[in-house]
Amino acid sequence: MIDSLVAEGVEVTLITERPAQEAPGVRQIVYTVDESTTQHPALAATEYHLRTGEAVTRLMERLKRSDPPDVVLGHIGWGGMLFARDALPDAGLIGYCEYYYRSTDSDLDFGIDEPVPAADRQRVRMRNAAQLLALDTLDAAYAPTQWQRRQYPAAYRQRIAICHDGIDTRFCRPDAKAAFVLPDGRALAPGMPVVTFVARDLDPYRGYPEFMRAAARLAARRPDALFVVVGGDGSGYGRPRSDGNSWREAMLTETGLGDRIVHIPWLPHEQLIRLFQISAVHVYLSVPFVLSWSLLEAMACGCLVVGSATEPVTEVIRDGGNGLLTPFHDETALADRVQEALSNQAAMRPLRRAARETVIAGYERERCIARQTGWIHQFGD
């Protein structure tokens, strides 16, 4: 979106805690957040949001004196928009609504039989404080998906539009001539029995343990299958393991997959797309949480996706229509569906085409950007 605004001659200022790569026509102003002093665990995130709001507000007030912005667009979950209305009373305020935390029927209690501890429920409820205060001051707001919008309180939902950040479907596209070279030098190409799995970090939120157990079952049935996993060893969206090991280390020990699986910590974007282009089956699992861009990019590349039958995923994957679905916690069912997909590649081609068509119809980048810039012009004029 920023590139489109700059091309139109709009003056763009990025207020950020972490400097981004320099871009023509974009001014960056970096802020720092004061160190937390709270001793109450439920207030840790709230204090961070408050201090972020204070830091960003100081910069907004400086801009107001020298070059007042017409419109401010910002993520409402991290505190930066908390005091924007006070600092810039005449500016149009647009909020990006990524995720509203819930203590029940959410990522917090997904797949857990015992009650969630009261301290955890209180902690996630307090994480929403900055969002609710910011929502009350906005001129417009939007969420990337229908499911993400539904997580917000009913009183606010009618004010939140739906607009994804957008997928570049010209870059993310099928390529029958694609090639992907593994770190050990092996070359992979379309048609090979390659099963892929991608996450920022390999953690339970994205179903990494379930995938590894299913892969171990499938490896015994399909000696020719190769599993390629991309993801880091950080704790991701969950908590670190109590034994100090990464989930990758723990699952390799548990499954004994050895050289049947290749782990790659990180890939440049263009190489990730090539991996999607050669994938025979792409597995995407997620607890009820923010939908990964990687799923939509894989679909745009024509991947045959086997996904978890969880709400964020079922919004984009229709079982037997543009992909295959399986229960999140059923590793045997997951192995069965991946085997089904590997064994019936020709019959699965319509699902691949439909996956790409789904992304083009609902998530194509140019249309998403046009809608976002339309709001900016609406509130900036």
Rank of each mutant, 00 (worst) to 15 (best):
V283S: 07
L334E: 01
M299E: 04
T373M: 06
G307K: 03
I369G: 04
I376Y: 00
M299W: 02
T373R: 12
E297H: 03
G320H: 11
I376R: 00
H377F: 14
H329F: 14
L272Y: 04
S292M: 08
V283K: 04
C368V: 09
A300K: 07
A341N: 05
T314S: 08
I273N: 02
T358H: 10
A341M: 05
S343H: 14
S308E: 07
L342M: 11
A309E: 14
R318H: 15
L296Q: 05
L267E: 10
Y363I: 04
E297L: 01
L272C: 05
E340V: 13
L351M: 13
L272R: 06
N322A: 08
I369K: 11
C303Y: 04
L324R: 10
E357N: 09
L304K: 08
C368E: 10
E315Y: 02
P268V: 13
A300S: 15
P288A: 04
P312F: 06
L272E: 05
L304R: 00
I273M: 09
H282P: 07
A341R: 03
T314E: 03
I317K: 05
N344M: 12
R352E: 10
Y363A: 03
V305I: 13
A361K: 13
E331S: 07
N344L: 05
L295H: 00
T314W: 02
V359H: 01
G307R: 03
A347P: 08
V287W: 03
E297K: 01
Y363Q: 06
A370W: 07
A361Y: 08
V281Y: 01
A354P: 05
I317H: 03
E270R: 15
G374R: 13
V306T: 07
V287L: 11
